[in-house]
Each structure stands twice: as C-alpha cells, then as structure tokens.
Amino acid sequence: MLNHLTANIRIFFEGAYYSYRALFRWLRPATYLASKVFAPLTMMIFFVYIGAYASGSNNASFYVIGNSLIFAASSGIFGVTMSVGGERWSGTLPYLFGSPANRWAMFVGRAVMHILDGMLGVFIGLGWGILLFGLDFSHTDPMALLLAILITTFSTSGLGLLMGCLSLITRNVMLVNNTVYFSLLVFSGANIPVAELPRWMQSISQMLPLTRGVACTRTIINGGSLADVLPLLQVEFLIGVMLTILGYFLFKVFEIQAKKKGTLDIF
C-alpha cells in the first residue's frame, strides 16, 4: 500500500517535471522569456489601449487585471494541452499506455508545473501593470490575491486537461485550443464586463473557468477581502475539479478505445 502510494507520488511529480521540461527544453532562455514575458505583454497593451481609446486611460486597471489573468489560461490551456497531446505527436503514447503507472497520477501530474508557470505569468502581467499602467496594490490583501490566482490557474488547467484529451482524438488541436483561448477573452470578462454581455453569453460565462477568477482578482486588488470573494472562489475551484475529472474520464475512454481499435498512433 505504502509502496503504491510512493510510486504514484513519484510518477505524479516526475511526470509533472519531465512533461514540462520536454515542452520547453528546446527553447533558448531568450526565446522562452520572449514567449512568456514579452508576447503576453503586447497582448495586454493591445487591449489596454483599445480600452483607453474607448473609455479613457482611467479604466486601464480593468483591462490590466483581466489580461493578466488571461496568462493563467495561456499556460493552463496551451501548456497542459501540449503536455498531454504532445505524447501522441512525439510517439510516446503507446509506452505511456503500455505502462502499469497509475493513470490519475500520470494525467493530473501533467498540470502541476503549468499551474506554477501560469501563476508566474499572472504575476508578470500584474508587474507590467504596476510598471506601465500604475496598477495600485495599496488596498490589496496579498494572501487573498495569491489564493485567487492559484485557484484560477488551477481551474484553467482543468480546462487544459480536458482540451489535452481532445488533442488525443483530433488533428486540429491548435485550432481548438486557440478558439477556446480567444473565446475566454470574450466570455471571461477580461475585456468586456460580463454584465454587459447578452444574457445567453452571460450563461456561458458562468459555466467557464476564469470568469469568477477575474472578478475575484479585481475585487481583491480594489480592496475587497477574502470573505467577499470566497463564495465565488469556491465555485471557481469546483469548476476546476469538475473539468479535471471530466478530462480524466475522457483520457480513460480514449485509452480503452485506442487499445481496442489499435488507433493509438493514428492521426
């Protein structure tokens, strides 16, 4: 029993570490920094300036916070998806499914580094917000902010795990990923207040990860307490758990179907 547990913990963390390393090892540090620091910054600037053009520069913090949280989705969706789907592209999926390793530890472990990476991305985004747009943290509870970012990154990684499973059964994974990612820009309230969206879009917003995370982070940075946002954060966490379980279920279904039909490596 104890041996099993130790092995699963090892698989969990080794899977987390190696899948992340495999994803980014080929990048040089400058390229990695460019894609992690510079590219998200330019996307943030683009939306902040559209916002400034629309409603004046006083509203910059709304867009800075919203787009900083989008960085969590970037790691959560693209990073996690590629960690899972990359096994197929690199031809390692048969070995993975042929091994006796615990599937839950193997599957969920893929998200761990990307949650940390996503949190780092959010901090970098908020840091750019302070430097370039004077984002004010004087009324912010740092622990509440940290918790909100952690839960939001976790919930978007749950979506990434689900998308990762889809990447095992589709060739157009980047089309699906990019569409989901850009849809989050619309539905999550990062750039448009959810309350201003049509009713049917608001219903979709409420079902997605990130929406509540963005709202909570804005509230906390503007001086709200953890108690103010706790109910929303609980739901955000629950969405993340549900997406992870759904992703794991699909992962198992895919494994069974692929083994039955012999389609593990077929695109």
Binding site: A34, S35, A39, T42, I45
Partner: peptide, 8 residues
C-alpha cells in the same frame, strides 16, 4: 521561435 512575439 520568436514569431509569436511579433503578432500583437
């Protein structure tokens, strides 16, 4: 590798 940074 840097091309993603040139879009926005």
């Amino acid at each position: 590798r840097m091309v993603n940074t040139l879009e926005f």
